[in-house]
């Protein structure tokens, strides 16, 4: 049994993980603004980026509340190094081409819907409240990414090829979403966190269905990479953080 204090510390770390996931993916999606394939999509994908930045702020805000040591949402986003970031690797992969981003989005969106549905039941009222807000967004995100992957997969030979390449390149990073470490196990046992290991079957059912409609092949499970939760990242994250943090770190202690 964890003490109240241990539980709070674990919840803090857990919340930070979820904040990192949201920030890093939101950053990637925001890179599409002014780069979309046409104007309407540019605006629409911008909305998704905004949802994620908003979500990061909610998680970081709660983490700051739990830490109660003067740190703010911005301290978490702007003053930690790549070894301290604990996002899942799939979120930090570069935006790639449009197929790559939409395939990643689909894998993450299905996961997010399953995850948030469980987090709604969290005994931690704040996490449950964040989940309640976030799941509405994620339902819409999934509607978009599902349609995109189907349209692109079942579009031209080129678009199908691009989607399949993306899927094959990203697939090995999807397994990490369902891994549990000791911290997550403790929180799942305490009814605060989600047991993500139980989500993969449902996730796979949905993936199979969509990929079939998109005429894409489910990749083999013959490679997998993980480590994000322990700060063991790809090289991409360092560059992302360099850009994200440059102004903030150049003027230490300033208000913006």
């Amino acid at each position: 049994m964890m003490s109240e204090q241990q539980l709070q510390q674990a919840t803090f770390e857990y919340t930070l993980r979820l904040g990192d996931d949201a920030l890093v993916l939101g950053h990637r999606i925001s890179e599409w603004v002014r780069n979309g394939p046409f104007l309407e999509e540019d605006i629409a994908y911008g909305n998704v980026a905004l949802d994620y930045i908003g979500r990061a702020r909610m998680f970081y805000g709660y983490a700051a509340e739990l830490a109660d040591d003067g740190r703010t949402e911005d301290s978490f986003a702007y003053t930690r190094s790549e070894r301290e970031f604990s996002n899942l690797l799939i979120n930090e992969l570069p935006r790639g081409d449009f197929a790559y981003s939409q395939v990643r989005q689909l894998l993450v969106d299905i996961y997010a819907n399953l995850f948030l549905t469980r987090l709604l039941q969290s005994k931690d009222a704040t996490l449950a409240a964040i989940a309640a807000k976030a799941i509405k967004e994620s339902r819409y995100h999934l509607r978009r990414s599902r349609e995109w992957v189907i349209r692109l997969g079942d579009g031209t030979e080129e678009s199908q090829h691009r989607c399949q390449l993306a899927l094959d390149d990203i697939w090995g990073y999807s397994h990490e979403m369902f891994e549990m470490d000791a911290l997550e196990q403790q929180l799942a046992d305490a009814g605060i966190g989600v047991d993500v290991s139980s989500l993969r079957d449902d996730w796979l059912v949905q993936i199979r269905e969509i990929l079939a409609e998109a005429t894409l092949q489910l990749p083999a499970d013959d490679w997998k990479v993980s480590g994000g939760r322990d700060g063991y990242h790809t090289e991409f994250l360092g560059h992302l953080l360099t850009e994200l943090q440059i102004v903030h770190r150049s003027y230490p202690g300033c208000q913006w």
Binding site: A49, L244, Y251
Partner: peptide
């Protein structure tokens, strides 16, 4: 500047603003 905005609040505001311009 979206990816370099120095606070999360500013990042959200700028993102919404640039998106408005596209709109």
């Amino acid at each position: 500047w979206i990816t370099r905005a120095p606070s999360l609040r500013r990042k959200a505001v700028l993102l919404a603003k640039v998106q408005d311009e596209a709109g």
